[in-house]
């Protein structure tokens, strides 16, 4: 297939750097305590450290637009499904241009596909499994079945642990605003300190700003140091938007944002 090469991750990465096809490889490396961490490789020798296994779930697409990364040159990125969806969505929102990055699509370490164009990535994703994780689906169904008072109690209890570290925002590939509403203090939209009100308002705001854009990778929830299932909030909206308008995000560079478009006959039952 056009633009696709298969082979070993480390070999392909070394080859790309040697040919000066890219100046940087964004991938995963061994971290501490048996965990993996993001690894940024610009030297051919260090490509040995790159790895990919079942622990590598982080969505690396959030590094693609960070200034300290973009200044290092053209990147190749080790991409699992969620990273690929992040790349496509960023391209759909005109944050990335075609052929400015190379995705090394991985399923296991020895089966790497080199995808140079967005089209190739779209093709790769069209054959991929985009289902939610089973435990997320189960918790979502459980919450949907609860009464409103129980849901309030559930979220109040969960959000009491929020320390407002904004790790959810930093981890999200789609939270790329250079100035976030929570950093504005005139007006002070959301209280700065961790408080019941401010925590809730922050998560409402974050989810609303991801409505119609969220690629359902669940990275925000994984980044949360308090283990709050906050990823379910934008995922719930994504679920609803898929039902209402039939749109799936992060699969086509031409997809629109459902919140910045409309149909004159959008259905609702609550406006009198």
């Amino acid at each position: 297939m056009g633009g696709r090469k298969m082979g070993n991750l480390n070999e392909i990465a070394a080859h790309l750097l040697q040919n000066d096809d890219v100046q940087l490889i964004i991938g995963y490396g061994e971290g501490s305590a048996g965990r993996v961490r993001p690894l940024f490789v610009s030297n051919k020798k260090a490509t040995e450290k790159l790895l990919f296994d079942s622990r590598c779930t982080q969505n690396l697409a959030s590094y693609l637009y960070k200034k300290e990364i973009t200044c290092l040159g053209k990147p190749a990125i080790v991409a699992n499904i969620r990273t690929l969806r992040g790349i496509i969505r960023l391209a759909a929102e005109h944050q990335l241009e075609d052929e400015t990055i190379i995705a090394l699509a991985v399923s296991t370490g020895d089966d790497v596909k080199e995808l140079r164009r967005l089209e190739d990535m779209e093709q790769y994703l069209s054959e991929a499994d985009l289902q939610l994780k089973k435990e997320d689906k189960a918790l979502l169904d459980k919450l949907n079945a609860m009464t409103i008072a129980d849901r309030w109690a559930f979220w109040q209890q969960e959000m009491a642990h929020c320390i407002k570290c904004y790790a959810c925002r930093q981890a999200c590939p789609l939270c790329y605003c250079t100035q976030c509403t929570v950093e504005i203090n005139q007006p002070q939209w959301i209280p700065v300190a961790s408080s019941k009100l401010g925590n809730m308002e922050w998560h409402i705001m974050r989810s609303m700003h991801l409505a119609g854009r969220c690629i359902e990778c669940g990275q925000c929830g994984e980044a949360c140091p308090a283990n709050i299932p906050i990823h379910l909030l934008p995922i719930r909206l994504a679920e609803e938007i898929r039902e209402l308008y039939g749109s799936v995000t992060g699969i086509s560079k031409r997809e629109s944002c459902e919140m910045s478009s409309f149909q004159p006959d959008d259905k609702e039952k609550f406006i009198t």
Binding site: A149, W152, W155, S207, A211, L233, R236, L237, I241
Partner: peptide, 11 residues
Amino acid sequence: ITFRVLLDFMG
């Protein structure tokens, strides 16, 4: 439409 879904989901 979306906002109501989110508020309802948060209780």
